[in-house]
Design a protein around this nucleic acid. Structure first.
Length: 130
DNA sequence: TCACTGACCGAGA
DNA sequence: ATCTCGGCCAGTG
């Protein structure tokens, strides 16, 4: 039996999701707000964002939300979100598969083989920094 | 309703 | 380092 289920508390400084586990359709908006706060030249992961929303195991929903971010205004710097290994897993959702990397390099981040070099160094944790 | 898919993640083999 | 598996939850046919 697994009791290693660490229940994370949502970051109180962020807008909270509907209480009592009720699903809310503006989940995407919460994700966008966090992503918009990622400083230029820094990156974070889908899981870290999920954590700050109190949904540690729902990193997939973050990706799902971002796939819809083209419609959002103002624009969401989705290129600053990579997976927990620093891989640009979302690159195919951009206009061209290389755009994500180009945007990151424009901000001073080095990308090799679709992977962020010195990922830890550039990592921005919404849980701690917000 | 069921089954499968995903811009994911952590643990094990 | 690479691969597989179970878990997560919304959308799709």
């Amino acid at each position: 039996m697994k009791e290693n289920r660490k229940i994370k508390t949502p970051n109180s400084k962020l807008p909270s999701i509907t209480p009592s586990g009720k699903k809310d359709h503006n989940f995407s908006q919460l994700v966008f707000e966090i992503v918009r706060q990622i400083p230029k030249g820094r990156v974070t992961s889908y899981g870290a964002i999920a954590q700050s929303l109190g949904m540690e195991k729902s990193a997939r929903m973050v990706g799902w939300a971002l796939s819809n971010c083209s419609n959002a205004a103002p624009k969401v710097p989705a290129h600053r979100v990579v997976n927990s290994s620093g891989v640009l897993s979302g690159r195919h959702a951009f206009k061209t598969p290389t755009l994500m990397q180009e945007l990151l390099e424009k901000e001073g981040i080095v990308v090799k083989n679709n992977k962020v070099i010195h990922f830890k160094k550039y990592f921005w944790d919404p849980m701690e920094e917000l």
